[in-house]
Design a protein around this nucleic acid. Structure first.
Length: 594
RNA sequence: GCCGAGGUAGCUCAACGGCAGAGCAAUCGCUUCGUAAGCGAUAGGUUGUGGGUUCGAAUCCCAUCCUCGGCUCCA
């Protein structure tokens, strides 16, 4: 029997899995001839995949839900029964459930016990994990219908998947639905239009992003911020071309291994060229353009490198999955014995960058040597040992969690994927740090060692934001469009009470701008209430309401985005405070009501 | 790429075989106002694109482009 603690994950999964069974019953009753396949509990609910002549619509979901409630109220027990292969096969053959027969064969092959679970009139081939009865299924909702391949294989039939969720309590369900609403409100595509941050145009092409002035300003701040840190850490910036002869990608191996992700060649004077899918080969070209001594290492090349990758049309998604994007890319060229030190620096850099952007929860996933890998054992052992040590000590000290994925690395070297949690608890992968023993060999990238011989250099690929597009999209959602002062495209908006205020407002505007801030001015003849409303919708962090009383008093009235107000602050004090807040990359307002 | 749903004014949407409309935004007036929507007027469209059916197409059909929900979570 499943855990009866209704707060346990086990109970939640049984509830949802049971709910999936009830849904399958309802669907088969309402749409006879529908074949059932699988219906597991998932992270946030459950689904069931059906093969049906009928195309399920959103309207059908209400009907199915209604029938599900009737079934659930019937208080039917879930009964498990061990079956012989023959018995089970006869049952499913009789019902023409071809998918179940296929699953059954799989179970037999693996030598597992065959069980059927029945409630009311519905029986499923199922390994179990159910409630005692349907009665506890009360707080559920069907959410959407979508296509899904049988067994996730695009060569197999396309099934119809109905998603739903269920909770032990009404509060749980309501909280979940509210969270979905919240995610919807924060959607960077929606906010991107509303806040005039970016656009994507049919005339230009899918997955190709246009940064509008306000979005570009945010990006510029990110770029400047990162440049400073990279300078601190000894990086050198480079620029490389956006197209390259196929020759380059033959040497790098991309043409042989990653042709799917590259765009078709363009012919230039009988030579095939390609749009750049990654920056690494170019950076290696710079590295090996001259001889390097072991004393010169590590050499760190950074580039905000724009690359073009072919993504299938169906997977494009706002800024999060695009076809042209700019990576905050860098390649470190070092000796094997320098990996540890570079990793320490990298981890600290990652922490500094994420912290300034409000991401405190960071988790590293180290993927180690896979079965098929290139490079000597000693090379891998040394590299992995150094990385592990850094994760166990340095990363841990910075508060990073980490997990090890044994054998999950690339054939060319171990890697660390770095994930963060956003303001509403969603996990995103941002950065990646990958060691590469392969590319230096393909390009014959070496250095002169202390003994006068030559060694292959070790290459570290790394990105912290990942890409500016994706990172910006995640930031918009993380902050729900309300950027902290250091990133906000407009930092202070001056709102005039009446037309007489305009000269004073212009003076204030100039003073703020001189102070290195990003002000905006609304001197229209709208009422103050409307101006506040507009500035709030624009998600400007600070407003200055400027009227005759302020001019008379020689001070300012400030309103924060969240509605709090501060009166009687002098102009210089305001500028000073804002500069301070922007400079320290503070994530919360420094000006607060006393 | 595949399954499904969509594409109408800058934005959000209506009209669903019979004159293409509203709200917000914009522009021009009036209003000069103290913390989330003051009033009026004007302008704005080859209904994604191309083809077809029809006396007549935003609406029906075909093609195409784009957008959205999904396509790992193995009874």
């Amino acid at each position: 029997m499943p855990n009866s603690d209704i707060n346990s994950r086990e109970y939640l999964d049984s509830l949802r899995h049971s709910c999936a069974h009830v849904m399958a019953q309802a669907v088969q009753e309402l749409f006879p001839g529908t074949k059932i396949t699988i219906g597991p509990a998932i992270e946030s609910g459950f689904y069931y995949d059906f093969d049906s002549e009928h195309h399920f619509t959103v309207e059908d979901l209400a009907k199915i839900e209604k029938r599900m409630r009737q079934i659930a109220e019937g208080n039917h027990a879930f009964k498990g029964e061990v079956q012989t292969y023959e018995g089970s096969a006869t049952y499913w053959k009789g019902r023409n459930e071809t998918y179940k027969l296929e699953l059954l064969d799989g179970i037999k092959e693996r030598g597992e016990t065959i069980t059927h679970y029945t409630h009311d009139t519905f029986t499923d081939l199922c390994r179990g994990g159910h409630l005692e009865s349907t009665k506890a299924i009360r707080h559920f909702k069907l959410l959407s219908v979508a296509g899904a391949y049988w067994r996730g294989d695009e060569k197999r039939p396309m099934l119809q998947r109905i998603y739903g969720t269920a909770f032990p309590s009404k509060d749980g369900l309501d909280a979940y639905l509210k969270q979905m609403e919240e995610a919807k409100k924060r959607d960077h595509r929606k906010l991107g239009t509303e806040l005039d941050l970016f656009s994507i145009h049919e005339e230009v092409g899918a997955g190709l992003v246009h940064w509008h002035p306000k979005g570009a300003l945010v990006r510029y701040q990110l770029e400047q911020f990162l440049r400073k840190l990279l300078d601190r850490d000894g990086y050198q910036f480079v620029y490389t071309p956006h197209i390259a002869s196929e020759e380059l990608y033959k040497i790098s191996g991309h043409l042989q291994n990653y042709a799917d992700l590259m765009y078709a060649p363009m012919e230039i004077e009988n030579q095939p060229f390609r749009a750049k899918p990654m920056n690494c080969p170019n950076h290696v070209m710079i590295y090996r353009s001259r001889l390097h001594s072991y004393r010169d290492l590590p050499i760190r090349f950074a580039e905000f490198g724009t690359v073009y990758r072919f993504e299938k049309s169906g997977v494009l998604h706002g800024l999060l999955r695009v076809r042209g994007f700019t990576q905050d890319d860098a390649h470190l060229f070092c000796r094997l014995d320098q990996i540890r030190e570079e990793m320490v620096k990298l981890i600290s850099l990652v922490r500094d960058v994420y912290k300034a952007c409000g991401f405190e929860q960071v988790k590293c996933y180290l993927a180690t040597r896979p079965e098929k890998a290139m490079g000597e054992d000693a090379l891998w052992k040394s590299a992995e040992g150094q990385i592990r040590e850094v994760l166990e000590t340095h990363a841990k000290a910075l508060g990073f969690d980490f997990e090890i994925d044994e054998g999950g690395g690339a054939f060319y070297g171990p890697k660390i994927d770095i994930k963060i949690k956003d303001a509403i608890g969603r996990e995103w992968q941002l950065g990646t740090i990958q060691l590469d023993f392969n590319l230096p060999r393909r390009f014959d990238a070496k250095y002169r060692n202390a003994e006068g011989g030559e060694d292959f250099v070790v290459m570290i690929h790394r990105a912290i934001f990942g890409s500016f597009e994706r990172f910006f999209g995640i930031l918009v959602e993380h902050f729900a469009g309300v950027f902290p002062l250091w990133l906000a495209p407009v930092q202070v908006k001056i709102l005039t009470i009446n037309d007489e205020m305009e000269p004073h407002a212009k003076e204030l505007f100039a003073a703020l701008k001189d102070g290195g801030l990003r002000p905006d001015l609304d001197a229209s003849s709208d009422k103050i209430g409307n101006k506040i409303r507009n500035a709030t919708l624009e998600k400007v962090p600070y407003m200055v309401v400027l009227g005759p009383k302020d001019v008379a008093a020689g001070t300012l009235s400030v309103r924060l985005h969240d509605g709090r107000q501060v009166a009687g602050i002098t102009r210089d004090a305001l500028i000073d405070k804002l500069q301070q807040e922007a400079r320290t990359m503070s994530l919360s307002p420094v000006i607060t009501p006393s």
